[in-house]
């Protein structure tokens, strides 16, 4: 049976003057899915989320959520949507509880149900004991957790998160991701933008890879890695390399030169072991010196490199 659609995006475009931030995006996200939007900065993730949350008007295209047109019924749909922006979007001079009470009231929560929800969300993100503390005194990790809690107050069906783990310690990151996983298990559809491939690989049922506003790949992490993921050998030479050397390397896989001086090279290969042996032989035979040398096993990062020629963090 085909899963039920939660979000449908058709031919979505957004232009800022001459710049086209989103170029005809088509996506379907299913109910209960943990969906990842992966791409480097400027890929169009935040713009897409801005449109989905009604903050940005699209230039063209159609979005329906839960079967309703977003542009026609924005308030009804927003009421069932939770949004966790990339920035710390709360009031630092208020306490965690005061912030939660304010945003809860904005979503129509009152009285006992508001108090209960504040209690639940602060407990979910591990801030129950800090609820009366002024947020300005929180660590970055605590702020990130509060940011998430504020998006959960009204028990949304669809949770949209824009890079919710940027700049946090491992402990807070794990706490956030575990909370999200639990929410997803309880039936909440999670739409999650990140450029941390390990997070996308671990939690997302499906991943859409965006680059320069275009969808370049969409599938489960496993299928994407299987289809496009080749091992990546990242090399930095001590000295400038010449054309002959690069031609010789092309025998082991596809070579990408990353800088003008031809010192930084990416070698994509399906046969890591053979390529390594050949590279070491080449080094000894020609006296080539490596400054850095590392091997990346096939993952979503190497998928992105394969599809775009660039790293996700470029």
């Amino acid at each position: 049976m085909r899963p039920e659609s939660m979000v449908t995006i058709e031919n979505l475009r957004k232009c800022y003057g001459e710049t086209e931030a989103v170029k005809g995006l088509d996506l379907e996200i299913f109910r209960g899915e943990f969906f990842g939007l992966l791409g480097p900065n400027g890929a169009g993730k935040t713009t897409t989320f801005g449109i989905l949350t009604g903050l940005i008007e699209p230039t063209e295209g159609h979005i329906s959520i839960n079967g309703f047109d977003l542009l026609l019924r924005p308030r009804k749909l927003k009421a069932r949507m939770g949004f966790v922006p990339q920035s710390f979007a709360f009031y630092p001079t208020l306490t965690a509880r005061e912030n939660a009470a304010f945003f809860g009231r904005i979503y129509g929560l009152r009285g006992r149900s508001l108090t209960d929800r504040i209690h639940v969300v602060l407990e979910t993100v591990g801030l129950k004991d800090r609820s009366e503390q002024q947020v300005a005194t929180f660590s970055n990790g605590m702020k990130r957790r509060l940011n998430l809690a504020l998006g959960l107050l009204h028990e949304p069906d669809l949770l949209i998160l824009d890079e919710p783990t940027v700049g946090v310690d491992t402990q807070s990151r794990n706490a956030i991701l575990e909370s999200l996983e639990a929410l997803n298990r309880s039936g909440v559809t999670v739409l999650y933008a990140t450029h941390y491939i390990e997070e996308a690989q671990r939690f997302c049922h499906r991943v859409a890879i965006l680059d320069y506003g275009k969808l370049i790949a969409l599938d489960t992490p496993g299928v994407l890695i299987q289809k496009f993921g080749r091992s990546l050998i990242r090399i930095e030479f001590q000295e400038v390399s010449d054309e002959t050397l690069l031609r010789e390397m092309e025998r082991f896989g596809s070579v990408r030169v990353l800088d003008d001086q031809k010192r930084k090279i990416h070698l994509e290969t399906d046969h890591t072991e053979n390529a390594l042996k050949s590279l070491l032989a080449l080094r000894e035979g020609r006296g080539v010196l490596f400054k850095t040398f590392d091997i990346v096993e096939p993952n979503l990062e190497t998928v992105f490199v394969h599809l775009t020629g660039r790293s996700l963090r470029d």
Binding site: P74, F90, Y91
Partner: peptide, 15 residues
């Protein structure tokens, strides 16, 4: 604007 609180508020069902 800078903190993004307007962004969060406008993502809510708030005219």
């Amino acid at each position: 604007k800078k903190d993004g609180t307007f962004q969060r508020l406008l993502a809510a069902p708030l005219p």
